[in-house]
Amino acid sequence: MQFVILCQDKPDSLDLRLRVRPEHLDYLHAQGDALMAAGPFLDGEERPIGSMLIVDVASEAEAKALADGDPYAKAGLFAATQIRRWRWGVKPPKA
Rank of each mutant, 00 (worst) to 15 (best):
A38T: 08
R21A: 05
H24G: 06
I5A: 12
K94L: 14
A75D: 00
F41T: 05
L6A: 03
R84F: 09
L77E: 09
L28W: 09
Q8G: 07
Q82I: 07
A61C: 11
S51F: 05
V57Q: 01
M52A: 05
Q8S: 13
D56P: 03
K74G: 00
T81F: 14
G32S: 00
G76L: 05
E23G: 12
D70T: 04
L16W: 03
L35P: 01
L35T: 07
L28N: 04
H29F: 15
L14E: 02
P71N: 07
F3K: 02
K94Q: 14
D56T: 08
G69L: 05
D9R: 07
G50M: 06
R85L: 05
E45M: 14
I49Y: 07
V20T: 11
A80E: 13
G32M: 09
R47Y: 02
S13F: 10
S59Y: 06
Q2E: 09
L28A: 11
S59I: 09
I5E: 03
A30H: 15
D9K: 05
A65T: 13
I54V: 15
P40Q: 04
E60D: 06
F3T: 08
Y27T: 07
A75Y: 00
P22K: 12
E62P: 13
D33R: 15
C7S: 12
W86V: 00
W86D: 08
D33C: 14
A65L: 13
M52Y: 02
A38P: 11
V20A: 10
A73C: 15
K64Y: 09
D43M: 13
I49R: 06
H29Y: 14
E46F: 14
Q82A: 15
L66M: 12
L42C: 01
P22G: 08
R17K: 05
G69F: 10
W86G: 04
P22T: 02
G76N: 13
